[in-house]
Design a protein around this nucleic acid. Structure first.
Length: 490
RNA sequence: CGGGGUGUAGCGUAGCCCGGUAUCGCGCCACAUUUGGGAUGUGGAGGUCGUAGGUUCGAAUCCUGCCACCCCGACCA
């Protein structure tokens, strides 16, 4: 394996692919479109899961688990839902293999399933079929359930983490007595995602609503968070859907209100996936490798010894182990890399590639001076400090790195978000300055499609809480009351 | 799924046109010297040339199918 990475400027796609491989995050599997998430990559996902799971619990949700397989008939009940997912479903048709007598293992045609099973691309249908049995009265509501699961969407083109045929995610599915309550839930969970993206991933996001054509299949309204990657392309990082009564009607889920009247239940669903890892990679990393936000880094601090003699090594190790103890007490994930098989320079490069936020080096000079050298991954700055109070110094440094990379990403987004007022300018900016574009749109799917067909840019969202501004659609000249966010997207 | 490209040791490659079981670098193993930014020397291991067929005395090389990956399109929460 060659040592470095191709630069982002030379080939952004290749840079991403090399980084995923060399940082030991994931690799392609023997199965088309499916990835193997390696231990280091999975450790990032586990950190994300732990934080999100707590956030879901803090907002009143409980975890449950529903089946991988969905009967085809369930799937067909909600018309727009089936239409949206039909072209990318894996279907199980048989339940047995047999030996054909010539030494080949073949599908046993006698073992055909009475009803085919769909491998879930999302679980609304099986869940609403189940909720029907759970809900009779308003007293059974709300139901606030989340599940951590894998889903399968048979994608044509895949990229590690960003779009794979199978991926890991969580999907929340809630049931409510009123539309208002469900809408509040939809908005609450969008905000949970936004907070997670910004405070934990250090990735600024735009909160918004999808246009009708970008909406989740079966939703009344889809909210999303959109992030800007370093190549100027947008990434949808999370979605939260107000499903109205669509699934309740499709699965006949009614409840009796206080007044005794029957009504269909109101629903939401919301999810984020391992795609977040791809987003986090592209938001922060540089030509030396991964840059991880300290709050989600599997290893936050690595300690590397530099020594000439066995005796020196022993002295350094004793100090290093003491530091490990101190840092662990502060809940910092620290690793002492005492491998004798690699030289220090090799280790420096390796942990840079893996995005470890802080590197602490102890060598002979430090033994004499009572110091350690501290290097931060995000800026590559190095400084030598006294060994006393190293723990507190590192606590503050990790916080500072978290803030610094967020601010850097935010500045990047601000510098690459442009207001545009004519279609000609829109096309020019799109090519010359890839990024977010705020422009007026007449609100019709026809115009949206025309823009997409002609420029490959899509409306990422209609931003929430953005200023109302009278304007004219850049394509048709029809009136518009606010700018919407355009970009080319992943 | 359409167009183009690639597939040779863990990784990157030469050889392919003009058929005779394979080159080089990195990595790996052993030993020695080394260790403050990807060490050096010596010795060594590692290959059904993506895969399945075909042509041939003989296939990495020629032909066909299939698989995977990359780029571009189509598709896509």
């Amino acid at each position: 394996m060659s040592k470095g990475l191709i630069s982002r400027e030379d080939d952004y796609s290749q840079w991403y692919n090399e980084l995923v491989a060399k940082a030991d995050l994931a690799e392609h599997s023997a199965v088309r479109g499916c990835m193997v998430i390696k231990p280091y990559g999975f450790a990032i996902w586990e950190k994300m899961q732990a934080v999100l799971d707590q956030m879901f619990k803090d907002t009143g949700h409980s975890n449950a688990y529903f089946p991988l397989f969905i009967p085809k008939s369930f799937f067909s009940k909600e018309a727009s839902h089936v239409e949206g997912f039909a072209t990318e479903c894996a279907v199980v048709t048989h339940y047995r293999l047999k030996n054909d007598g010539k030494g080949n293992i073949v599908v046993d045609q006698d073992a055909k399933l009475e009803e085919e099973l769909i491998v879930r691309p999302t679980s609304e249908t099986i869940i609403w079929n189940t909720y029907k049995g759970w809900i009779q009265s308003y007293r059974d509501l709300p139901i606030l359930v989340n599940q951590w699961a894998n889903v399968v969407r048979w994608e044509m083109r895949t990229r590690l983490f960003l779009r794979t045929a199978e991926f890991l995610w969580q999907e929340g599915h809630t049931a409510h007595a009123t539309a208002q309550e469900a809408i509040e839930e939809t908005e609450r969970m969008l905000e949970v995602y936004a907070q997670f993206a910004e405070n934990w991933m250090a990735m600024p996001v735009v909160r918004g609503r999808k246009t009708a054509s970008e909406r989740f299949a079966g939703a009344v309204d889809t909210y999303c968070i959109e992030a800007l990657m370093q190549d100027g392309k947008a990434l949808q990082a999370g979605t939260s859907h107000f499903l109205g009564q669509n699934f309740a009607k499709a699965f006949d889920v009614k409840f009796a209100g206080k007044d005794g009247k029957l009504d269909h239940v109101w629903a939401t669903s919301w999810g984020v996936s391992t795609r977040l890892i791809g987003g986090m990679i592209m938001a922060h990393s540089d030509d030396s490798g991964l840059v991880l936000p300290p709050k989600l880094a599997p290893i936050q601090v690595v300690i590397i010894p530099i020594y000439k003699t066995e005796m020196e090594f022993d002295q350094i190790s004793s100090i290093a182990k003491d530091l490990v103890g101190q840092l662990k007490k502060k809940n910092i994930a620290v690793k002492y890399d005492d491998r004798d098989s690699q030289r220090p320079g090799y280790k420096f490069a390796e942990y840079e590639m893996k995005g470890v936020p802080v590197r602490l080096t102890i060598g002979g000079r430090d033994l004499e001076n009572g110091t350690v050298e501290i290097a931060r991954r995000d800026t590559k700055e190095k400084q030598t400090i006294s060994r006393e109070h190293v723990d507190q110094f590192i606590v503050e440094l990790l916080d500072d790195i978290q803030v610094t990379i967020y601010n850097k990403a935010l500045k990047f987004r601000e510098q690459n978000t442009r207001k545009v007022d004519s279609y000609a300018e829109f096309k020019r900016v799109l090519d010359e300055h890839p990024g977010f574009i705020l422009a007026h749109w007449d609100g019709t799917p026809e115009t949206e499609k025309q823009i997409k067909d002609e420029t490959k840019a899509t409306i990422r969202c209609i931003p929430l809480n953005s200023e109302q501004e009278v304007g004219q659609c850049m394509v048709t000249g029809k009136p518009s009351s606010q700018r919407v966010l355009f970009a080319r997207a992943y």
